[in-house]
Simulated scan of single mutants.
Amino acid sequence: MTNDRNIRILLVDDEPHILQFLEMGLVEEGYTIKTAPDGMTAVNMAVKFQPHVVVLDIMMPGMDGFETCRLLKKRGTDMAVIMLTAKDEIEDRVKGLKLGADDYLIKPFSFEELLARIEARLRNQFPSLFGEVALGPFRMDDRRREILYRDRVLELSPTEYDLLKYLIINHGIVLSKSKILDVVWGYDFGGEENIVEVYVRSLREKLNDKDHRLIRTLRGAGYRIDLP
């Protein structure tokens, strides 16, 4: 990733060593970075900085990440918010999504995974920064809601498009059924997790992926696309 697009990321955490570590890594990747040690500072800073992505810790003294997320989204709904939580609890995840969070990571996490999440949110929410995105054998044009596989246009339903796009932009990352449901169907979806299997099966047919070498199933964990 280069800085020619001036992609801005705001890091919010009350632990200085985490802020320093993430800032160093993301600056090295070419992003423009600002840091905030608490929620109120982040909200005020965001007005002028106008970040594309906010990486936001939940557990902070004073104003916690949930309230910070609510205020950030109230002032700028276009920004993507990735919440960091030390607890893998459904209640925290649902609460964050209801307040407008776009993604979440559970501590401890690798820098590579955070970087992949950031790039996924940018491609998903700011496609104009990229135009047509080429990843491996896929080409995605979000403006046309069109995905080409080996230069062949795939005939996809709206949900199939959203699901395949989510798998592609998160390539190399294992995505659980519950995570896929949260993002593609929405946190308030009342159906069964098996709906994900149905749509993955349909995508495999359209991709001629009979051996499941493109969309891989990791038993008990979820799905993953590996791209060259």
Rank of each mutant, 00 (worst) to 15 (best):
F126Q: 04
E205W: 07
E155V: 12
R213C: 09
Y223C: 00
G222A: 03
P37H: 13
L163E: 03
D182M: 00
F126V: 09
S176N: 06
L227P: 08
I9M: 00
V133D: 01
M24H: 14
L26T: 02
L26Q: 00
V196Y: 02
E112L: 03
E89D: 15
H52I: 05
L218T: 06
D102G: 02
L175R: 03
L19C: 10
P61T: 10
L163I: 01
H212R: 13
L115Q: 15
H171W: 02
P158S: 01
Y104C: 06
C69H: 05
E23H: 10
K107D: 01
G136K: 02
L164M: 05
P61G: 13
I58R: 01
Q50K: 14
D102M: 12
G136F: 11
L105C: 00
R152F: 05
E205C: 05
I33W: 00
P37N: 11
L56K: 04
L71I: 08
R139A: 14
R204S: 10
R201W: 03
R150M: 09
L218I: 15
S202A: 13
L218W: 13
S110V: 09
D13T: 04
N44L: 04
D4C: 07
A42C: 06
S110K: 10
V55S: 00
G65W: 00
I168S: 03
K48D: 15
I169G: 03
V81D: 10
D188R: 12
K87D: 14
Y187M: 01
